[in-house]
Design a protein around this nucleic acid. Structure first.
Length: 146
DNA sequence: GCCAACGTTGGC
DNA sequence: GCCAACGTTGGC
């Protein structure tokens, strides 16, 4: 069971655009950081994660699900170093959780959002996941497979 | 738009 | 293999 967090700059790829892709989902291309890539390689089908708007918004706005295992990143021009997964939107977070909220809450002081500010694909613990869902007003949060 | 943090690159 | 230079990310 694992949870994740995906960062995206909304003027490049926003939650609205992600939702518009529906169940088909979208390749999470463009990651050029080994740690972030390794996180994606560790993902399983059905794993859930947060969709976070960086740069503008600075808040967790939605929940996504991994719908394709890591595969070569089609934007990497054949460079075998870079892989990515596909994700699809599952549900909104009715009350988006801002970075400020996360930083102000001692329960989240060990979150990668706080400790590894620049990592664009991060692991989230079960506790963090369900607490953010609770605060964000997500009823019956979708769970990752066991 | 600035700049701090941090990851990567490349010379030695 | 060290570390300085450089590039990028992302909060402010």
């Amino acid at each position: 069971m694992a949870y994740w967090l995906f960062k995206s700059e909304p003027d490049v790829w926003s939650w609205e655009q992600q939702k518009a892709k529906g169940a088909v989902g979208e390749e999470w291309t463009g990651v050029r950081n080994y740690q972030a890539r390794n996180n994606m390689r560790a993902m399983k089908i059905g794993d859930k994660g947060f969709f976070y708007h960086s740069n503008e918004g600075l808040e967790i706005v939605g929940i996504v699900e991994v719908c394709a295992l890591s595969h070569p990143d089609s934007s990497a021009k054949g460079d075998p170093k870079w892989d990515c997964v596909d994700i699809r939107a599952v549900t909104d977070v009715p009350k988006p959780i801002t970075l400020k909220d996360v930083k102000a809450n001692p329960k989240f002081e060990k979150m990668s959002l706080v400790t590894s500010m620049r990592l664009s694909v991060q692991p989230v613990t079960d506790e963090e996941y369900f607490e953010i869902c609770r605060l964000g007003g997500v009823d019956n949060p979708p769970k990752s497979p066991d």
